[in-house]
Write a protein that binds this DNA or RNA. Structure first.
Lengths: 208, 208
DNA sequence: ACCGGTCTACTGACTTGTCAGTAGGACCTA
DNA sequence: TAGGTCCTACTGACAAGTCAGTAGACCGGT
């Protein structure tokens, strides 16, 4: 979906990518303006179109770079070095860590999820679905082995993803609802601890 | 936010409202086209603007009607007729029931949440925040009384809201990811049971 | 002399909102 | 019951503005 015909990296190109990520997150694909993105990057909008062939191309590049990061940063979390509940925590933390450093991408991803994710087809097949199924397989195995109490593994993953993802994508809404800094380190660890605490109470077998 | 200068209800007006809800959910405020909404409702776009003064007015009317439904349908769930975990289930079920019958609105709401929810200010003050705090107060009380195991009540509500809300707002994404009917009665009860099961394991006190 | 990167100026497509005008029902009056 | 007047619902044509994308010139470095 994303082209790679342009020179792979230049200062302008990187700056455009950065401001585009923020604009697409703030306003969505339709709402974002090439002229606005270019202005924030210190360029005219035809110059932006010199670096990226079209708006769709720019958008695709934003997605692509974030999905590559996702694949790299979550690989360790599902590779299964740990056992039982410790590994569950590692998966949750991977999600928190990734979105904490890619907060804008969380909102772009949510917009895609709303519309069905057509533009994410490659990312789904290459990264997201494998990640999900590896996690589900792990949960299945550990429940079978008695290291985790039994719950529906696929639904469990969806509940966790929904909770973590919402924490980041809806941060501005939460700011308005609760009148507090929604992504402060404090708020983040509080939410992370609440989720892992809930999961521990539900998943860790009763014996010591 | 929404005007009431037009005749309160007419067949055309109702039809416009219905197709507008779907279009705004599918494409967002910027992506939706007045001409498209009008065509689907069997009218020309100036006629749409005869019934609603502007695109923003139409959007406001869509929001307004759904928020009124929300207030009416969730009132019972937090009024607190039940005790302990039974009441928790009642709150969860209220969320599932509302969104199951307002699936398009779930996606509109998520788009608002992404952008900070400026257009929901009245709804937040009148309905959403009171609902949240009544639920949090209830949880606090029940934990104090020992009828629920202790967790952070506010974070708990956010986890639940994130899970339920995501189930509906991201249904199309889930369809693509899992290649299954995302809002079938079966999928719905399965997710509902997984969530209440998880909560029961974490919240219900250990004694019988 | 070339070329990568940038600009200004422009276009064509599209969108919201306006406006003048029409069809037809309801209501009144003689 | 005929004719006049009003009102709601609706339309086609258009004004005004916005946007992505294009054309072509400029400029500095190699």
């Amino acid at each position: 979906m994303a082209s790679a015909t342009q020179p792979s990296e230049s200062p302008s190109r990187a700056r455009i990518l950065e401001t585009a990520r923020r604009e697409f997150a703030d306003r969505g694909f339709d709402g974002a303006r090439l002229a606005g993105i270019a202005r924030e990057a210190g360029l005219s909008h035809p110059t932006l179109l010199y670096h990226f062939n079209s708006k769709a191309d720019l958008y695709g590049s934003v997605i692509e770079s974030a999905v590559l990061d996702w694949a790299a940063e979550t690989e360790a979390a599902v590779s299964g070095a740990l056992e039982g509940f410790d590994q569950v925590v590692s998966i949750i933390d991977a999600g928190f860590d990734f979105f904490a450093t890619h907060a804008d991408f969380a909102r772009i991803l949510r917009r895609e999820a709303l519309e069905g994710g057509e533009r994410l087809d490659a990312a789904i097949t290459d990264s997201l679905r494998p990640f999900l199924y590896r996690a589900v397989d792990f949960l299945e195995r550990e429940m079978q082995a008695g290291r985790l109490r039994r719950h529906d593994p696929l639904e469990l993953m969806q509940i966790c993803y929904g909770a973590v993802f919402t924490f980041f994508s809806d941060s501005r809404f939460r700011a308005r609802l609760l009148d507090s800094d929604p992504l402060s380190p404090d708020a983040l660890t509080r939410h992370r601890n609440a989720l892992t605490g809930l999961l521990e109470a539900a998943l860790r077998p009763s014996s010591g």
